[in-house]
Amino acid sequence: MKNILQIKNLKLSFNTDNGILKALNGINLTIQEGDILGLIGESGSGKTVVALSIMGLISIPPAQINDGQIIFKGKDLLSLKKKEMTNLRGNEISIIFQEPFSSLDPVFRIGDQIAEAIKLHQNVNKFEAREKAIEMLRKINIQDPVRVAESLPYELSGGMQQRAMIAIAMSSPNLSLLIADEPTSSLDVTVQKSILNLIKGLKENKSVNSCLFITHDFNVIAEVCTKVAVIYAGNIVETCPMESIFTNCKHPYTKALLKAVPKVSGNQAELESIKGFFPDLVKPPLGCYFHPRCLDRKYICQKEIPKMIKIDEGHYVACHLFN
């Protein structure tokens, strides 16, 4: 199976007024052809930073890439020239964001925005692009594509806006990787389901090869993903196939996350939460970043950062408990 994307030991930091903030501390991720990799973690864990780094959309003056490579189809994206990276964007890698309204230009019509993307990636003229845009909207199950194409973003509902965003992201025939950064977090539950079905359908009809799906919701992971990676404070703490995450997860953080999900059935008196606070990334804890909040911590946990250890086929954990 070919590797579409391989992130090797990516270290990224931000220069802030209070000091250097270590946003990514050696990220290792692999996405193979046909994978839908779910990246799950709390707010502030670095998920969006990973996504934007792949796209090359992190502004480099406050941010700094200290180490690592992002290898996409054999090329290191970090060493590409600006023009080459711009050619890749929207063409072979595209991204959809959490807030669809704030990702659309408010003064241009939806149809024009999709057509703009189509014209960029396919060899068509203005009118053909317009036609294709309406076609695309129809393919995504929008009932009245012509009306929607003539509308401005504020005239559409959240779900429609997100579909429009997906249409823009899918405008290239060369798409290999789709990054979805919490695409359903700002939508209500019924709309969520239809968007997730849409994304699953894209993979099934081969519109896109593979997908990096970023979320903080385990239910979404269960719906869509084939593999899961758990990220905490800029570190990947566990990666495993989707089946293992619920039944056989190993890392204390993953376990705590799963426990924190409220249960619909059964008697649950209190909501479980993880004790302690998210670490200060300017002065992170020594050793494993999670150790201050870990109930099973050992002495070595506050001395050394744990390396990824293979537990099983496709299942890796970064924890001293499994040395």
Partner: peptide, 12 residues
Amino acid sequence: MKIKVNALNSPP
């Protein structure tokens, strides 16, 4: 053995 944790200090 009680492990002392000082990761929760606030800045001055």
